[in-house]
Every structure is written in structure tokens, then in C-alpha cells.
């Protein structure tokens, strides 16, 4: 990682110097990326389930910062709102509903941890090699010649409601279906015969 960052930095130093002090953005990006990665690693390795959820908050927040650094501010706020705001809360609720133990649980990892480690390290090595090899000399021009940031709410909203209306509406239907599905799944099965069941429960 350091070597990669170093090589990238030397590349940056060699080729591009100019707008918006790119090396500064890069440094921040790398730092935040390191925090994000560390939080993610803690999420998947900690023995305490609630801590894992909290580390996930950190990781998702780091990703939101990365979005900001990539000038996608609307996405970043959506990330904060939905992920950090709702998904993590949902997960915490799930942990509580499944009576997850507070404190260290020694069996948080399953038996095939080492196999998982090997697979993921190998995947990481392969993918990093390929990605670095492919985008070694590619640069993102973060400077926006046309006024406000390309990821601002206005730009994103325009694109979304001009070009992506139909998928957006389809997505709303999907969300509705997910909502209904979650309700159906969460209900105790067989609620069709609810009144007699209730009377029977009352008798007991």
C-alpha cells in the first residue's frame, strides 16, 4: 500500500501539478482511505458484535468522505443519510432482536476463517495487481470547468430526473416490494386465521 502510494505519488509529482493542489487531495484521500480500511477490517474481525456495527459506521462514514473528495457531494450525503442513518440503525436493531450478546463472543468467526483469509488475500493481490497495472497512468481531472461540482445536488438531480426517471420509478417499485416483503417475512406465519388463534391464545 505504501509502496503503491509512493509510486503513485512519484507519478503525480512527476506528471501533474496544478489545479487545486491535487497532491493534497490525494494525501487526504489516502489517509481517509486508510481509516476506512482499518474500520472495515475492525468490522470484520472484532469479536464484539455491537462494536462491529459501530466500526461499520466509521467505515461507511469514511467512504462518504471519499465521495466528497471525489466531488460527488450528493452521493456523500445520501451515503451518510441512508447508510449511516438507517442501515446501521437497522443492523443494530437486528442485532438486538436476535439477542446478540453484548461483549466479546468468542465464536464470532466460523471455522473456515483461514480459508476465507487465503481467498480474500489472493483476491486482493490479484485485483490490486490488475487494477494498478491498468490505471497506472490515469488521472482524474477534479477541476470542474463548468462552475459547480459535477457531483452537486443540482447536477445529480438534473441527471436523475432527466435521464434516469424510468429506472428511478422502477426502483421505487422495488423499494415498495422490499417493504412489503420485509413486512410479510417479519409477520408470524399463518396470520390469516388470526381471530380464532387469538381466542385460543386467550384460553391458554
Amino acid at each position: 500500500m505504501n509502496a503503491l502510494a509512493h509510486s503513485a505519488a512519484t507519478h503525480a509529482a512527476a506528471d501533474h501539478h496544478g489545479f487545486l493542489s491535487p497532491s493534497g487531495v490525494e494525501i487526504v484521500f489516502v489517509l481517509v482511505g486508510l481509516v476506512t480500511l482499518g474500520a472495515a477490517l475492525a468490522t470484520v474481525t472484532t469479536k464484539q458484535l455491537v462494536h462491529a456495527a459501530l466500526w461499520l459506521v466509521v467505515a461507511l462514514g469514511g467512504v462518504a468522505v471519499e465521495y466528497l473528495l471525489l466531488t460527488a457531494e450528493f452521493i456523500a450525503w445520501v451515503q451518510v443519510l441512508i447508510y449511516v442513518g438507517s442501515v446501521v440503525v437497522l443492523i443494530l436493531f437486528g442485532l438486538m432482536l436476535t439477542r446478540a450478546p453484548i461483549g466479546r463472543s468468542p465464536d464470532a468467526d466460523s471455522g473456515n476463517r483461514w480459508a476465507a483469509l487465503a481467498v480474500s488475500v489472493a483476491a486482493a493481490a490479484t485485483l490490486v495487481t490488475v487494477v494498478v497495472d491498468a490505471f497506472r497512468a490515469t488521472w482524474i481531472d477534479l477541476a470542474d470547468p463548468a462552475g459547480p461540482g459535477s457531483g452537486s445536488s443540482e447536477v445529480t438531480g438534473t441527471a436523475l430526473f432527466r435521464h434516469w426517471v424510468l429506472p428511478f420509478e422502477a426502483l421505487s417499485v422495488l423499494l415498495l416490494a422490499a417493504l412489503v416483503g420485509a413486512i410479510v417475512l417479519s409477520r408470524r406465519d399463518g396470520d390469516r386465521d388470526l381471530p380464532p388463534a387469538r381466542t385460543r391464545a386467550g384460553e391458554r
Binding site: 503513485a8 470484520v44 485485483l127 487494477v131
Partner: peptide, 24 residues
């Protein structure tokens, strides 16, 4: 900004998630 930064970050994050899926 160098494109490799977000790409490598995404790869590593993905593999951390992968480890989590397989090991938890």
C-alpha cells in the same frame, strides 16, 4: 487525482468485505 487510489481502495474494501462474508 490518480485513479489508482480509489480503485485500489475499492479493491481492498471489497476484499475485506469478502473476508467478512466468508469468515463471519
Amino acid at each position: 487525482m490518480h485513479l489508482a487510489y480509489p480503485a485500489v481502495l475499492a479493491v481492498l474494501l471489497f476484499c475485506v468485505g469478502l473476508y467478512g462474508v466468508l469468515a463471519r
